[in-house]
Amino acid sequence: MSELKLNSLYQQLILEHYRSPKNRGKLDDATVSIRMRNPTCGDDITLQLRVDDDEMIEDVRFYGEGCSISQASASIMTTLLMERSLDDAMQIAARFTALMHGDEHAAKDRSLRDLRALQGVSKFPVRIKCALLGFDALQEAVRKTRGEPALEA
């Protein structure tokens, strides 16, 4: 049982994104940059977006360090954000958060694409915050872009 659970956590796709993350690096012309840290475990992600006047995400990068789950989750997330609106981004973040909290409908949601590989994390309660770190940064970035007050982490 625990071996199965472990295999569902460390899927090949996750390990690939951990080893060779997509969109890793810095944006020179970012319109918003958010750093999120998880003080209990040291995961650290900075997410940068370039958002145009119509709230479309033109480019995205992230950097930082942390466990395979936090880094792979952020990497996969960035692949879904290119050329999407901030509304879409918030929608993805909400669906993914539901997936992490065990929502079965979210698990079947095709719009989450590769993020569904992270479904196994929901069986490891202490690791859910690792998977959500990049999405916390994303939601904060959207709020900041829209001039809304930041949520206290």
């Binding site: 625990s2 659970k5 460390y10 466990c67 395979s68 690791r127």
Partner: peptide
């Protein structure tokens, strides 16, 4: 190696071994 300490701890825990990972 490349295994982050949190991943090490999760894998060990799945085999009943409790260690600490972090700073």
């Amino acid at each position: 190696g490349d295994a982050h300490p949190h991943d090490i701890s999760t894998i060990l825990d799945s085999e009943g071994v409790a260690i600490r990972a972090g700073h």
